[in-house]
Nucleic acid binder design. Sequence first.
DNA 1: TAGACGTAGA
DNA 2: TCTACGTCTA
Lengths: 179, 179
Amino acid sequence: QKWINTSQRLGDIPGVLVGDVFEWMAELNVIGLHHQFQNGIDYMKRNGITLATSIVASGRYANVVESSDVLIYSGHGGNPSMRANHQPRDQKLERGNLALKNSMEAKTPVRVIRGFKLSKSSNLTSTSCKNTIYLYDGLYYVHDSWLEKGKFGKLVFMFLLKRILGQPKLQWPKTIEEI
Amino acid sequence: QKWINTSQRLGDIPGVLVGDVFEWMAELNVIGLHHQFQNGIDYMKRNGITLATSIVASGRYANVVESSDVLIYSGHGGNPSMRANHQPRDQKLERGNLALKNSMEAKTPVRVIRGFKLSKSSNLTSTSCKNTIYLYDGLYYVHDSWLEKGKFGKLVFMFLLKRILGQPKLQWPKTIEEI
DNA sequence: TAGACGTAGA
DNA sequence: TCTACGTCTA
C-alpha cells in the first residue's frame, strides 16, 4: 500500500480509467481527479510555479469543442459576482489561467473531465434526479493560449488543449447531449 | 412504523429534539427539518395558501437577535444575482416572504434552525474543516412583520418571531460565536 | 429558468 | 476575503 497525494500530482490518478463516470464534483474531489468543488481549474505548485492539474469542462463557459480530441477552454475570472455588485471585468493572468499557461510552457499533462447533461430525449432511466454526469477524458497538453473578447466585451483567456495520443478512445455518450 | 411527509408538515419533526446539532444544510434536508439546500425559508401549501414550515438563521442576512427567545428575521429576494447582472431590488411579498406573513395570520408554528460559526478562540477540537453548525431551536410563532430599507436602500421584509413557551431551553453554545 | 442565510480552497 | 464550469427547489 502506497499513499499518494493526489492534490499534488500531475497526470493520471491510479485506478481511474478513461471513461470513468462520476455524478458530482464532490466525487471527483474524493477520487483525486479534481480537488475543487466549483472551480473549473485545479492547480498545484512545483518549484515555485503553478501548474494546472485538472480542468472540468461542463459547458458553463463558452467553450468550443472542435472534436473529441481537441478542447478549447475558457479561463476563469471576470464574471459578475454575487456578493458585491461587480461589473464584468477583464480576466487576469492569475490563478488557474496562469497555471494553464505555465502548463503549456512546461509541457505538463492536464487531466480533463467533461461534464454532460442528460437530455429530455435520453433513454437512460435515471434513478436519481441528477441530470449532470462527469466523464474522465484523459490527459491533454495545452498547445496554445490567447485572449478574446467575451460576451460581456471583456477579455477572456482561451486555451487550446489537445488529447495526448495513445490513450484509450473515450466512449462519447450517445444517449445524452453535451450542453 | 408510520411514514410522515416532512416536507408537508408544520411543527416538530418526530425524533428531532431542541438542541440537536447538524453540520450541513443537506443534513437538515435529510432529517426533514428544512427541505431547502440554500434557501433560508421553506414553506408548504395548505388549502391553497403557502405557510412557512422552517427557517434557517445563519447570520448571512442582517437579523437582529434580541434574545434567545426572540428572532428578527429578514425576508429573501432583492439581492444582486450571480447569473444576470442584477441590481438590488425591493423585496416582494412572494414565496418565503408571503409564506411567513401567512403563517403570522394563520398562527402556525415555524421551525427555527440557528446557524453558528466556530470562532478562532473556540476550544472545540474540530476533526473536520467545517466551521459552521446548525442547532434546532424549536418552534416559533410569527408575531409581526414590516418593511425596512436594507443596506442597498431597497425594501426588505422583516419578521418578528417569538419562541413558543414550554419548550426545553436551548443550550446556547458557549465555545462558539454567533456570526 | 431563476433564485437561494452553501461550501471549500486559494 | 474572495472566487468558483455546483446543486437544489419552486
